[in-house]
Design a protein around this nucleic acid. Structure first.
Length: 437
RNA sequence: CGGGGGGUAGCUCAGCCUGGUAGAGCAUGGCGUUUGGGACGCCAGGGCCGCAAGUUCGAAUCUUGUCCCCCCGACCA
């Protein structure tokens, strides 16, 4: 993409409404624009990151055997009356009336809808187990939205729902998602720690929050130092293996949110305890027959008798993750994207647009990179070098390929690693080789 | 929802107390000088001072109402 033809409204000043770092950086990097309190438009750069994160979530859900579908944002109040949550959910639910004065709502979650879909379709124990998921916009009318997309009212969420015949099956489904979550977050370059959690208004009794450590996190968390050092992907089993030992190991390492942590009964010696702040990026629940029972979701069991489905639900805050990754990865100059979620892999900087030699070399590099399927943002604007460097650092692409008259005289281009700051003077070919290998 | 702060140019803000021709910096357009880490000079464009009513000869400024935004608290993927 040529920057001169892109839409990247970066800001030099920090808009006053933004308080936390990720919000400021997202606004300054031209990723989002607020349209109402807690509601945001995703500008091209932010949209690319959102899609990258969504795709990682999707591919790991698929790998774990979950099946994707897409449910509506607007739901009928009728279903929620049946589960008893229409009243329980209170003012956090955005209620709408259609032209016939029917009561509708903008879905804050989808347990009712999915259960209703499934109940006429999963008929026999032979149809189980099943885990279905969708990635869809949700709306919760928070009393006070804040922190940008970290705590918006409208947010993109992956929500999965498991259906099993019995507790043993439900537990296995739960463990699969537990593993899928650890893998998903690790693939985004962040470390999410599963912590025992309250089940909240959604209900249930087996529940973990996945929390990433960041200085600007919303709540205090406490965990065993081992969590910070553990390479999850190295020790993780495959999804079709027995997950019980891994699950037992992982849940055996201490980790607790502020509400669950008691300094007096904490089993860890002080030097082993990490005290930090955390951001919740995922939450998994087992809740048994809470929705299947009132909504009548039953299948025929092996003996022919009806069995009420055992369910769990599993959420990941996709849009929140964009901000969470930034909270976990930035410096004074701006964002530092992990390569897996970066909007582009390479920023190609032409230090002297209009200079024949610079233009030619940049055009060549740009073509080669694109042909090699490397995502590249080419800053071909007629701006001063300082502006280009500052913008590129701000938007945080993992690699900067800098082409200027000084280097070309010596036959080199400069390759800068955004994360480490390391700069290498290389020939065009060896720079390309590093970026395309 | 309780408590606090705020809406003036695209962005950051001054002006309001004490009513009298609407300002600065940055950004934008033009010209010139610059050109490896957010350049400099000159010129130009850009505003229903959130909206409505009131007080007044006269309102960005005072009064009332209303909408919106931000912060603190309870609530949360």
């Amino acid at each position: 993409m040529r920057l001169s033809a892109y839409f990247l409204p970066t800001l030099k000043d920090t808009p006053t409404e933004a308080q936390i770092l990720s919000h400021r950086l997202m606004l300054r990097a031209g990723m989002i624009r607020q349209t109402s309190a807690g509601i945001y438009a995703w500008l091209p750069l932010g949209h690319r990151v959102l899609r990258k994160i969504e795709q990682i979530v999707r591919s790991e859900q698929d790998a774990a055997g979950a099946v994707e579908l897409l449910m509506p944002t607007v739901q009928s109040a009728e279903l929620w009356r049946a589960s008893g949550r229409y009243e329980d959910y209170g003012k956090e639910m955005l209620r709408i009336r259609d032209r016939h004065d029917r009561e509708m709502l903008y879905g804050p979650t989808a347990e009712e809808v999915i259960t209703d879909i499934v109940k006429g379709t999963l008929k026999s124990y032979r149809d189980l187990p099943r885990t279905l998921y969708n990635i869809q916009w949700k709306f919760r009318d928070e009393i006070r939205p804040r922190f940008g997309v970290m705590r918006g009212r409208e947010f993109l969420m992956k929500d999965a729902y498991s259906f099993d015949l019995d507790f043993a099956g439900a537990k296995r489904a739960y463990q699969k998602m537990f593993l899928a979550y650890l893998r998903t977050f690790a693939r985004m370059g962040i470390r999410a720690i599963p912590m025992k959690a309250d089940s909240g208004p959604i209900g249930g009794d087996m529940s973990h929050e996945f929390i990433i450590l960041a200085d600007t996190g919303e709540s205090a968390v406490f965990c065993d130092r081992r969590w910070v050092e553990w390479d999850v992907l190295a020790s993780a089993p495959a999804y079709d293996q027995d997950l019980e030992p891994f699950f037992a190991d992982a849940t055996g390492i201490y980790a607790a949110t502020e509400e669950k942590h008691n300094p007096d009964t904490c089993p860890l010696p002080a030097e082993q305890l990490v005290t930090a702040r955390g951001i919740e990026v995922g939450h998994i629940f087992y809740f048994g027959t809470k929705y299947s029972k009132p909504l009548g979701a039953v299948v025929a069991g092996p003996d022919g008798n009806p069995v009420t489905l055992e369910m769990g639900s599993y959420g990941i805050g996709v849009s929140r993750l964009v901000a969470a990754v930034i909270e976990a990865s930035h410096d004074d100059a701006g964002i530092i994207w992990p390569e897996s979620v970066a909007p582009f892999k390479v920023g190609l900087i032409n230090l002297k647009s209009g200079d024949a030699a610079c233009d030619k070399v940049c055009a060549d590099l740009y073509d080669v990179l694109r042909t090699a399927q490397v995502e590249v943002l080419y800053d071909d604007r007629e701006e001063r070098p300082g502006v280009k460097f500052a913008d590129m650092d701000l938007i945080g692409l993992p690699w900067q390929l800098v082409v200027g008259p000084r280097g070309l005289k010596a036959g080199t281009v400069e390759l800068k690693n955004r994360a480490t700051g390391e700069r290498l003077e290389l020939s065009q070919d060896s720079a390309l080789e590093r970026l395309t290998s």
